[in-house]
Design a protein around this nucleic acid. Structure first.
Lengths: 198, 198
DNA sequence: TTTTTAGGTCAGCCATGTTGACATATATTC
DNA sequence: GAATATATGTCAACATGGCTGACCTAAAAA
């Protein structure tokens, strides 16, 4: 939980590969840079981009670590967290909607859902309008777990936003929103702003 | 790859759980809010926090989708991408350093590394200072794959940063940096700024 | 009445993580 | 030089959480 990452091998490659050329010297014309809308970024811009990507990797790695530990106590995994989270945010959500959010298969969700229902963290109620639907809700037990899982994660994000200054939150959300596929962006935005907050 | 997420069930919970109360009505005193340093956030602040967290979830989901598709062509998975990425960024990196970055076990890394070396994407060279070490480099083939994987992901991030305005990049990286465990932050920063850029 | 939809279920596969034990070669230290 | 520590690889076994395909039921919709 606390081993520091290294500062690995500051030494340049002594023979195998010099990754300093980007376009096409001997390389077979990189397939994702067609002669139309080529990026045409400066090395400095490229470096900033790569660094931004790497920060995202490391941030996400640690962002998920808090709930992962708590989930372990319950014998659950990340998949359970996602279900608990979205059921908490959208009480009465249907299985189909949950599938669309999580983008996993019915079987994968079924397995997780069965455990959560079986152990009393989630309750199902038959839909009144459409009696085929099984609307999902957190039980009290489920809400308690949800709070435990959300707590440290919220603290982490709150601290990060605070540390980055008052303007950071808007910018942060704007970038994240534009990382989402354009086709989905509006739907995701609606989804997010429709959710309940515990 | 393009199914839109839903706007699920705007209907409030009709019986099972009303998640509108946060502290402790009937709930058994949520275990992660000790009476000392309680967050004490307003409902509006809490909502913003939750929304920021959810944006991160959706952004990361789509952020990883581009390389995932390409990896599939090669018969590889996300684990291979991570290795290719960090070997590309740190030519001559040792196995131990890679383990520290990825935070996985030697066996998990071994499996992936064996495939990448076996299929000629990564080459190993015995260390000169310490001949026990097996320094890792991308082969030409590996560099080509790395470029293919990095391309769409960089485009996505570049577009998102551009769309969020000129100030966004600094704020974005600042928040991400503060999401990383404090103990590791400086080491990660050093690692990131030491890497090579293709 | 027929068809479509929401959901569940079974069987099996794959990718990627885990632990524990052990082997080998090389560095380091006494 | 001998003992120990380190870098790395390897085997066996297992867990989680994805996946596919096939098939079932009940209820809604046509």
């Amino acid at each position: 939980m606390s081993t520091a990452p290294p500062a690995p091998t500051g030494t340049p490659p002594d023979s195998a590969g010099n990754p300093a050329e980007s376009a096409g010297s001997a390389a077979p014309a990189a397939p994702d840079t067609p002669p139309g809308g080529v990026p045409a970024r400066s090395p400095a811009e490229t470096r900033e981009l790569v660094e931004a990507i790497e920060w995202l990797f490391f941030a996400y790695r640690d962002f998920t670590s808090d709930p992962d530990e708590i989930l372990h106590e319950y014998g659950f995994g990340r998949a359970h967290h996602r279900v608990i989270h979205f059921v908490g945010r959208h009480p009465g959500i249907t299985v189909a909607d949950l599938l669309n959010i999580l983008r996993i298969t019915k079987q994968s969700l079924s397995r997780v859902l069965k455990e959560l229902v079986g152990q009393g963290y989630i309750v199902q109620k038959t839909g009144t309008k459409d009696r085929r639907q099984r609307l999902l809700y957190l039980s009290d037990k489920g809400m308690e777990m949800e709070r435990r899982l959300a707590g440290p994660q919220r603290e982490r994000v709150a601290k990060a936003l605070a540390a980055a200054g008052p303007e950071a939150q808007k910018a942060w959300c704007a970038v994240l929103a534009h990382l989402v596929n354009e086709d989905d962006r509006r739907a995701v935005e609606a989804l997010i702003s429709n959710g309940y907050v515990s």
